[in-house]
């Protein structure tokens, strides 16, 4: 069996010997990526499509450059597009060798041109799953079991192109699909709130962030807001991820911008669609416009502070104002113009 990332035994051994102390894990983004993201790593990407994607961490990985990465996620949009775009422009600086996923695209904003470019030119190895099978793979990892049985994927082509196996259930005698655990080398997550020890509070849908955190060898978390540990301790039922699963905490307001972060900000549709348009143009032969974007927004800035500095204030403001309010209140807002 090919285990991309850690095998269940390796994953277990690593956690057994890991320093699980409750200590201050604040780091700069540069340090966190330098410490925990290596060439060849299987990266578990948090969020869902363009919701709470760990954009800032992806930008830093691109700035530092890594080779032969594996990306594992259920559904994602901007993070794989950013990483694949970086590879398309400078394959000697950053490369992705493999993706294990269910959906790569942007829903309302269309398909991923970077996925199309990479696959149609046979530049990466692909393994298709479904949203549930990928989610259950992280869950199996989080549970410390080598596989889980699920009732999806039986009888179609997806099971023919991945490592799942159909068996007859020894109890019910019916067919069932077994999916192998996924233990990423590093989980990259953005959450709304965390304390200095790494206890995380996720608001709204958790997607598969808790499962990725518990299944991964190491975990980097960015948070919109660092909160007092006392606040966590007062209401621990609201903790989505416990501190000892987390290795680096980076306080980074707008760390998932321009994707939506529940209760903090809505999408910046202007920025998202601008980048998406450049990837579409790249696939049709315009390399320079996409390269100019990377030079301006990723390579040309030192960090996320400088990236956010380049976003017009009225776009940031509108993204904040359109989040968590009813339509009636939204009608009083003036949308920014691209």
């Amino acid at each position: 069996m090919l285990w991309t990332g850690l095998s269940p035994d390796e994953a277990r051994t690593y956690i057994e010997q890991k320093d699980k102390s409750k200590r201050d894990k604040r780091m700069t983004m540069t340090e966190a990526v330098q410490t925990f993201v290596k060439d060849g790593d299987n990266i578990g990407v948090g969020g869902f499509v363009n919701s709470r994607q760990p954009v800032a961490i992806a930008h830093e990985i691109i700035r530092q450059g890594r080779k032969d990465l594996i990306l594992s996620f259920q559904s994602a949009g901007l993070v794989p597009d950013y990483l694949l775009g970086a590879m398309a422009l400078k394959p000697d600086h950053l490369s992705v060798q493999r993706m294990e996923f269910a959906y790569c695209g942007h829903e309302y904003a269309g398909t991923s041109s970077m996925l199309r470019y990479m696959t149609e030119n046979e530049k990466i190895f692909i393994e298709d799953w479904t949203n549930f099978s990928m989610s259950a793979r992280f869950k199996a990892g989080a549970m410390g079991v080598p596989f889980l049985p699920i009732r999806s994927g039986l009888g179609g082509d997806i099971e023919k192109c991945n490592r799942s196996q159909t068996i007859q259930c020894p109890f019910s005698q019916r067919n069932i699909l077994l999916i192998p655990a996924c233990h990423p080398d590093v989980g990259i997550l953005h959450v709304q709130e965390a304390d200095i020890y790494g206890n995380c509070r996720i608001k709204g849908q958790t997607f598969t962030c808790p499962e990725i955190a518990m299944a991964s060898k190491n975990v980097i978390v960015t948070c919109d807001k660092l909160i007092d540990h006392e606040i966590i301790a007062m209401d621990p039922t609201r903790t989505s991820i416990p501190f000892f699963a987390v290795d680096a905490v980076v306080e980074l307001p707008f760390g998932s911008y321009p994707t939506v972060c529940h209760d903090i900000h809505y999408y910046d549709k202007i920025h998202l669609e601008h980048f998406k348009g450049l990837t579409d143009a790249f696939r049709k032969g315009d390399r320079d416009s996409l390269a100019a974007y990377y030079d301006a927004y990723i390579y040309g800035v030192a960090d996320t502070d400088q990236f956010i500095d380049k976003i017009p204030y009225n776009q940031l403001k509108y993204a904040r104002q359109t989040e968590s309010r009813n339509l009636e209140l939204q009608t009083h807002l003036t949308p920014p113009i691209a």
């Binding site: 559904s75 269910a102 959906y103 790569c104 199309r116 696959t119 149609e120 999806s152």
Partner: peptide
């Protein structure tokens, strides 16, 4: 052509997402 050209499709679409699971259950 599947499975021959799975790694080099003529057009790559976004993938199952949750549709494959919904179709089953």
């Amino acid at each position: 052509n599947f499975p021959e050209n799975y790694m080099k499709p003529v057009v790559r679409l976004p993938g199952s997402g949750g549709a494959g699971d919904m179709s089953c259950s």
